[in-house]
Amino acid sequence: MHFDLLFFAVAVPAVLFAGVSKGGFAGGGAFASTPILALVIAPGHAVGLMLPLLMMMDVATLKPYWGKWDGTAAKLLLIGALPGIALGAAIYHLTNPNVFKLLIGAISIGFVAFQMARSTGLLRLEGHGVGPRAGLVSGFGTGFTSFVANAGSPPAAVYLLLKGVTKTEYQATNVIVFWIVNLIKFIPFLSLGIATHQTLLADLMLAPVALIGAWLGVKAHHAVPEKVFFALTYVLLVATGGKLIWDALI
C-alpha cells in the first residue's frame, strides 16, 4: 500500500462518504467506501482499512440506542454470524485477490438490487413473522458478507423486517449486532493480514476525516433529501462493483 496522491484522492472521499452515511443516514451508504477503496488497493486491505473506522463510527451510535434492541433477534444473529465469519476467513485464506474482487463486486450490485426492490415495493418484508432458524440463517449471511466486504446489513435487514420489529428496535439491534460482529472480526483480520500495520497507519491518518464525515452527516440529515443521498450511493456501488467484477474476470 502506497500513501500517494492517488490513494488519498480516493480514500478521503470514500471515508468522508461513509462518515456522512453513518452520521445522518443510518449507515446505509457506508458500505460503498469498501468497493471504492478496492479500486486502488488490494480488496482485502480495503476491507481491513475500513473496519476500525466503521468501529469508531459504531461507538458513536451506541449510547443513544443502548438497551433498546430486540434481545432475542440480536442473540440469534450473533450466534449465526460466528460460522459466517469463519467461512469468510477460510475463503480469504484459500483464494486470491481476484476472488475477493468478484465477491465485493457481486455484493455491491446485489446490495443495490435488494434496496431498490424494497424501495419500489417489489420486495415486501415487514411483519410476516419468522422463527429462530431464520435468525440463525440471516446471522450466517450477515457474518459472511460482513467479513468479506463490510456489507452485512442486507441479511440482517431481511430477518428484522420479517420479524416485524419497531423502527427503534431495528436501528438499535443493528447497532449492537454490528458493533460486536466488527469486534469479533478484528482478530482474524489481524491474523490473516487483512488489517496490517499499514492499514492501521492509514486509519490514524483518516480518523479525522471519518469524524468530520459523521459530523457532516448529522448536519446533512435534514438538509439533504434521503432519496438524493441513496441515489448517489447506488450509482457508486454499481459503478465500482461493475469495475471490480470486470477486473476480476479479465
Rank of each mutant, 00 (worst) to 15 (best):
A86P: 01
I85R: 09
L102T: 05
L103D: 00
P97Y: 05
L87C: 11
A86R: 11
N96S: 14
F114N: 05
N96D: 13
G88H: 04
S108T: 08
K101M: 12
I104N: 09
G110Y: 13
F100V: 10
G88S: 06
V99I: 15
A89K: 12
K101N: 04
V112L: 09
N96A: 15
I109F: 13
F111E: 00
T95Y: 06
A86N: 09
P97C: 13
S108Y: 05
L103C: 05
A86K: 11
F114I: 10
L87K: 07
Y92F: 12
I85Y: 07
L103R: 01
G84P: 00
A106Q: 00
A90C: 10
G105F: 03
V112G: 04
N96F: 15
A106S: 03
A106L: 05
A113G: 03
H93S: 13
H93L: 15
N98G: 04
G110T: 06
I109N: 08
F114H: 06
F100Y: 13
A113T: 08
K101P: 00
A113S: 11
T95P: 00
I91S: 08
H93V: 13
A113M: 13
H93P: 04
A106P: 00
T95G: 04
T95F: 09
I104M: 14
I91K: 09
V112R: 02
L87M: 12
A113E: 08
K101Q: 10
G110E: 04
G105S: 03
A86L: 14
L102P: 04
H93F: 13
L103F: 14
A89Q: 06
L87W: 09
G105K: 01
L102C: 10
F100R: 03
I85F: 11
H93I: 14
I104R: 06
I85Q: 02
I91D: 06
I104E: 04
I85T: 01
F100L: 14
V99W: 14
V112T: 09
I91E: 10
I107E: 09
N96V: 14
L103M: 04
T95E: 07
A86E: 09
S108W: 05
A86M: 12
A89S: 11
G88I: 10
G110L: 07
L102Y: 11
A89T: 08
G105N: 02
I85C: 04
L102K: 07
N98A: 14
P97T: 15
F100K: 02
G88P: 00
I85N: 02
A106V: 00
T95N: 04
L87Y: 12
G105W: 01
A89H: 10
G110W: 14
A89N: 07
G84C: 06
Y92K: 06
L94N: 07
I107S: 04
I85P: 00
G105C: 03
T95W: 03
A90E: 07
P97H: 08
I109H: 08
A113R: 08
I104G: 03
K101S: 06
I109K: 10
F100I: 11
S108A: 15
A86F: 14
T95A: 15
G88Y: 06
N96I: 12
A86H: 11
I91H: 10
S108F: 07
K101A: 08
V112Q: 05
K101I: 04
A113W: 14
K101D: 03
Y92S: 01
